[in-house]
Amino acid sequence: MNKRILEETVMRTLMKLSTLLILSVLVIILITILVKGLPALDLAMITQSPKGGFYLGKEGGILNAIIGSLYLAGGSTLIAVCLGLPIVLYLNIFARPCSRLVRFIRFSLDVLWGIPSIVYGAFGFTLMLFLGLRASLLGGIIAVTFLILPIMCRTMDEVIRMVPRELLHASYALGATRFETAFTVVVRQALPGIMTAVLLSLGRGIGDAASVLFTAGFTDHIPDSLLRPAATLPLVIFFQLSTPFPEVQNRAYASALVLTVIILAICLTSRALTGRYTKHTIK
């Protein structure tokens, strides 16, 4: 009897400890980035593009990378929504439920989700060679779109799947076509979930480095055309950290702080949005 109670207590303590460990690691990471990044962060960092010799410790900021990342992630999120929403609506509304095609697409999206971003980068690079593109904002957008499309689709899919079937039937009974039902009833009902999917993809797009390494190139300027190279925040962090100069490395910490804040903001917005935008949803 005592042995069982002892076992129970020991295991329960171990579980609590490991939960605590995992949660505290996150807190430690955030604190480390904050403590290291904050002293090096100033207004010039986020309002200026790099001046000459920025990577040797001279003046300037990382505005080009912030804008570049936003363009890149924004563009690819936009394309991914335009491709992902039809896919998900087709799977759930138009296609015969549980058909072989539906199962295959869901499965292949799951597998695509697991493919590492460096592979998407390499593939994007071969695609660019094939199309005759140079490293550019467009190339980066293509690679990142491939990367976030499965994430977007599967996240939206999980939400749209939960839309009650009765709602569809009610809409059909009123004489609406599948197209009208999909884009007016279903999308509206699933709007909070779609928002979450979009923000999740946006965050992934901003934070990913390996897929843009080959494809987006690097520059000190804010990109003014799709065919120009674009700097991205993760790469700026990486390059600054690889220099031997302590002051440039400090800037890497500050840039990391900027990136973390952006990601945190996206996470919080997504949490807040889930609560709102439910005006049209039927419980």
């Binding site: 896919i87 697409i105 292949s108 695509l112 493919i115 593939f123 499309l149 197209f179 009208e180």
Partner: peptide, 30 residues
């Protein structure tokens, strides 16, 4: 309205099937 529904259905089916081919496309390209 029916025509629009049919066109949308075909178009969406096309995108969906294309997304299923991405994996093979990547493998082929590499």
């Amino acid at each position: 309205r029916t025509v629009r529904d049919t066109i949308a259905s075909r178009g969406m089916a096309l995108i969906t099937v294309a997304s299923g081919g991405v994996l093979f496309l990547i493998i082929l390209g590499l």
